[in-house]
């Protein structure tokens, strides 16, 4: 958007001036630049997680022994719940892209419908995360024991009286009772100083920070979606003859989904 006339361009090159090499509006480009910087923040967090996991590789908890709960199911269902959360978030990403698509066709009613579904999906994801945080903090019934010799033994609600160690070994019966009786400490659940999942506070610290930071992004996204829905309903975009607002908000929402794909892999799968 230059102030002077664009009648004669002195250069035919796309970088010669008077044309946009990116062929997008400023608003979208700014959103992209913000998302790249935000991607760097999340990358740094996940890479820090990776570095510490390699540092404490022999005591780091195995994710599929930590996230084993599923609502209304008694027993071990590792990864099922986060798989469901991933599905919810991908689904809400699809409804968002359908809202953008409807915006291109200037179908106000359809944009509203898809935005409402996206918001519902966002709230479902936030609710799932709250449920997961509750179980992570609350932990199991008996928790873990720091034994007199410094070893770290976990109990299992489904196998009472058994102590399990990170290297896969088990102790049962009278021997386990003896070890528990002489143990130094019993840890139930998780907080920022200790957790029952492994003999390092870092695991819970990273869990709270990374999933919390992502959850806060989802929360912000839901709020921004609600504001967008209000603007669309008020006829703001109709009057402007432009649904680019939905597109920009959509970019942010897909980014949140993208980050979850990485969190899912590096926090829960590997």
């Amino acid at each position: 958007m230059s102030n002077h006339s664009t009648a004669a361009s002195p250069s035919t090159s796309i970088w010669g001036g008077d044309v946009s090499p990116f062929k997008v509006s400023w608003g979208k480009l700014y959103m992209w630049i913000f998302l790249v910087s935000d991607a760097f923040t999340f990358s740094s967090l996940l890479i820090a997680y990776g570095a510490m996991r390699h540092r404490f590789t022999d005591i780091w908890p195995l994710p599929n022994e930590v996230f084993t709960h599923f609502p209304f199911v008694h027993g071990h269902m590792p990864l099922a719940y986060v798989g469901l959360m991933t599905f919810i978030l991908i689904m809400s990403s699809v409804t968002m892209v359908l809202a953008v698509d409807a915006g291109h066709k200037f179908q106000k009613k359809a944009v509203e419908k898809w935005l409402v579904l996206t918001i519902i999906g966002g709230f479902m994801f936030l609710g799932s995360q709250a449920w997961e945080w509750y179980h992570f903090i609350h932990g199991s019934e008996k928790g873990a024991y720091v034994l007199a010799d410094g070893r770290f033994g976990r109990t299992d609600d489904l196998e009472p009286g058994v102590l399990k160690f990170r290297d896969g070994s088990k102790v049962e019966g009278a021997e386990a009772t003896e070890l528990i009786a002489t143990s130094k400490k019993n840890i139930i659940g998780a907080n920022l100083e200790e957790n029952e999942y492994g003999n390092t506070p870092l695991f819970a610290n990273f869990f709270f920070f990374i999933t919390g930071f992502h959850g806060f992004h989802v929360f912000s996204g839901v709020m921004i979606n609600i504001i967008t829905l209000a603007l669309v309903s008020s006829g703001f975009n109709e009057r402007k003859k432009d649904y680019e607002l939905v597109e920009k908000v959509g970019l942010y929402w897909h980014f949140v989904d993208l980050v979850w794909v990485f969190v899912f892999t590096f926090f829960y799968l590997v």
Binding site: S43, S44, I47, A48, G50, A51, M52, R53, H54, R55, F56, T57, D58
Partner: peptide, 13 residues
């Protein structure tokens, strides 16, 4: 950054 951080973390371990 992935390369240097993972390398460094492993070395510390």
């Amino acid at each position: 950054l992935i390369f240097i951080a993972i390398y460094e973390g492993t070395a510390l371990g």
